[in-house]
Design a protein around this nucleic acid. Sequence first.
DNA 1: GTGAAAGCGCTAACAG
DNA 2: CTGTTAGCGCTTTCAC
Lengths: 329, 329
Amino acid sequence: MSTERVTIRHVAHSAGVSVATVSRVFAQSSSVSEELTARVLDAARRLGYTPHAVAQSLASGRTRVVGVLVPNLANPYFYALIKNMLHEADRDGYRLIVADSDESLAAEPALGMSLLGRSDGLIMLSPRCGSEVLKELGGQGKPIMVVNRQIDELGLSSVLLDNFTPMRQLAMHTVELGHRHLVYLQGPVRSWQEKERWRAMRSLRVPGVTVTPIRAGGTMENGRDSADRVLATGCTAVLAHNDLTAIGLIAGLNEHGVSVPGDISVTGFDDIPFARFTSPALTTVHSPQEDIGRATWRMTAGLLHGDRPGARTMLTTQPVIRASTAPPK
Amino acid sequence: MSTERVTIRHVAHSAGVSVATVSRVFAQSSSVSEELTARVLDAARRLGYTPHAVAQSLASGRTRVVGVLVPNLANPYFYALIKNMLHEADRDGYRLIVADSDESLAAEPALGMSLLGRSDGLIMLSPRCGSEVLKELGGQGKPIMVVNRQIDELGLSSVLLDNFTPMRQLAMHTVELGHRHLVYLQGPVRSWQEKERWRAMRSLRVPGVTVTPIRAGGTMENGRDSADRVLATGCTAVLAHNDLTAIGLIAGLNEHGVSVPGDISVTGFDDIPFARFTSPALTTVHSPQEDIGRATWRMTAGLLHGDRPGARTMLTTQPVIRASTAPPK
DNA sequence: GTGAAAGCGCTAACAG
DNA sequence: CTGTTAGCGCTTTCAC
């Protein structure tokens, strides 16, 4: 079955040149005369030669692979980001290898290490792990990029979205609609984004307006399961940690015969593709996946080329008002 | 920064054994006396040694990586599958490297080849490419698994879900509700699943019942954009290629003031997580991602261990009746 | 511009 | 059970 592999040697021999020349032609590393280039390419085509990626990696010390560790691939937020980076990286000749930690804080170190072992660098999306883990990963001497998590101590590069400002604006939007009793549905505890969003809610000091936090989590199920507790508060508007939770909550409220936004207004965060297809369409904060993905890859590529780590890119965004928010009755 | 790498040599020297022994201890390939094992492990820990994955791959000829080519990572259908396989593979010590062809038929060969170059095998999810491409990929001598696509000629292993039967049942469900004029919203042209689903619709020979096909595509946008054409047919029930299209269509119909299922019944296919959270909850066909993912990985693992290719696993499933279908007015 | 040769770090016969 | 050794296929000085 497995026909003898065609190596650089065969090509060199067939083209009447040295292996070094063949290597140079394929790596375009140093110039080779037109004639030899043609001969090499011709021989390679005839023989059906393809460079052996693993051997190239061992010899050169670069794998042209970058690892991506994501807390939960089931969140559209992340795959939109990944899809973006996949293409950005592809353009630079890099492949992404992804692992999913399933929101498990404990799984991050091992997965990260394993990923780093077969790659030139690691991109950590919304990591929940402690900074000592990040430090250890960084100790491997390979670039580490952190997305959606602010790290001050270690000199890691990061891409962040300002969650605070738009979350505050979103809350103000509900207040301006006339809501006085708000509920904030909290997301994953260890998430930096959660901390920022909650900080924004807490910062909302408007006379007569109260904000009640309710612990939920970041999934649709979590949202649905919070319906009871939300209703018990008697609030008129709910700001959910993210779109998934908001969508789940809306479904849960509907099941209780409560209409959105008729009886209660609900907002999300992220603006996942579904957000504009739900009924009512979801009022949320747009997360610029394209920009985040591009910025992340560009910085990663920079690190791979020797840029000094420690840079931080902070992106901004704003609320998108759609149909799930309305004045209270 | 990059402290000198600790190699198997250092460990061997420090433990006072040969490199072969160290290799054996880490590979657990052949038995090593307790004493030496302890000494090696101790030295390794002291020195902070980690096996170099790339070197292992080159020397052993196995990468412990498997490639996954997916047409569109933005479809929850696929990432649920991938997430499943990710974990199944992880358990066997394999890492998955994924590429997204963006529904581009033309991109599949190159991406597939590139993936195969750094892996021990390739899993192709719903490939759209011609069988000659599949054959070429198979010619690399590495295992190829095909999911959601029936290939008869080449002896490739595959995992399939019977789309025909449940699609037919779903259609019968609408007929039994009293619908007489059905519309079928067609998905991606080259998709095997699309062919099967459409075949099921065509096979529906019930006197007095007509089925009108409308070309759409597989995304939510495609669904929404079909609303006009759907309304123009005067039908009372629409069976969409998949959940995404169905969700898009429902949004589109709502925008036209048409209610679902009040005015028109709509069904999907796949039962993505969102399907039960839309309002109305979507009547669809459940796709057993867990089973598909597990079966796919098990077969892949088998091939990796030398199983003969060509096996075909056909899974079955059925419709899930929820709230988006109702008798016509 | 081109070739020779020394590895990259590890595995897998093969001997003992 | 353990050590020796010859590569895996390619890159990369270093001479020419």
